[in-house]
Simulated assay, not measured.
Amino acid sequence: MGQRIVVGVSGSPRGLATLYRATVEARERGAGLCAVLAWQLPGGGLGGRATYGTTVLGECRAAAVEQLRATLALAFADARPGVPVSGLTVRGEPGAVLVEAARSADDLLVVGTGTRRGWFPGLRPSVARYCLTHATCPVLAIPPDPLDAELAALLGTA
């Protein structure tokens, strides 16, 4: 099996920048691109207290698949990626899902880093930090573009 570029996607503008960078890496290396979207049930992770039936589970899984399709369609609407692209949606914590998806030493895992915002940033583990610590393959961590902060300030979302 040849090298794969595994990239975490979220559907956010920041995630699109990471996906574009992963696509460039795949082209330069002659590798396939595997876009991975980790999803969770409403209310938290796998250890959440809420119990959901199979209907809700199926709806959440279908929503994740649709979000991944929409993200890939948006990212490559203007131009084909020029590399084989596959998609994977997995229920679980993003860091753990990405590390498991990029389990071959030949893989390259591409993740975005970001600023720690919100009410309790320390309670949400950094996906990039988790991947850098646990991955068995090389990890390319893409820092935020300084223009992202300027745009967020202009939009009042900073």
Rank of each mutant, 00 (worst) to 15 (best):
D148H: 07
A73N: 05
F120I: 07
V99R: 01
L46V: 12
G58S: 11
A135W: 00
E25Y: 12
E66S: 08
L147H: 11
R117E: 13
A77Q: 10
G8N: 05
E66D: 14
G30V: 09
E59L: 08
P94M: 02
G114W: 14
L16R: 10
T23P: 06
E150L: 15
Q3F: 04
S104C: 14
L140T: 09
A79V: 15
P125S: 13
V127N: 00
M1S: 14
A149G: 12
V6F: 01
L33R: 08
V36S: 00
A153R: 10
P42C: 01
L19G: 02
R27T: 13
A105L: 07
G15M: 04
A22K: 05
H134V: 10
V36K: 03
V90Y: 06
D106R: 15
P84Y: 05
T113V: 09
L37S: 01
R91W: 06
D148E: 14
P42A: 02
Q67D: 09
R61T: 04
V97S: 03
D78V: 05
A101F: 05
C137R: 02
R69V: 09
G2C: 14
G58Y: 06
G30Y: 00
P138Y: 02
T18Y: 01
R80C: 02
T157S: 07
R117M: 12
I142F: 04
G44D: 04
R21A: 09
A102M: 10
T133E: 13
T157E: 05
R4I: 01
E150S: 13
T136R: 15
L109T: 08
A101H: 09
L154G: 13
Q40N: 11
D106L: 15
G82P: 03
M1G: 14
E93S: 10
R103Q: 10
R91S: 08
R117Y: 11
A22H: 01
P138F: 07
A153T: 10
L37M: 13
L37C: 00
S86N: 03
A22Q: 01
E93T: 12
H134S: 13
T157R: 10
A70I: 06
R80K: 06
R29P: 02
G45H: 07
P143W: 03
V65Q: 14
D107A: 13
P13K: 12
G58R: 13
Q40W: 12
L57F: 09
V36I: 00
G122D: 10
V85H: 03
L154V: 11
L57H: 15
E25M: 14
V127T: 09
G118C: 00
A64V: 07
T23V: 11
P121N: 10
G44F: 08
L108P: 07
C137I: 12
A158D: 08
G53C: 02
L33W: 10
T113N: 04
C137E: 07
L37E: 00
L154C: 06
G156V: 04
I5W: 03
V97Y: 04
A35F: 05
G44S: 03
R91D: 00
A70V: 09
G114L: 14
T54H: 15
C34Q: 15
Q67R: 15
R49Q: 14
A141C: 00
G53K: 02
Q3Y: 07
S10Q: 12
L57G: 11
C34T: 09
T157Y: 05
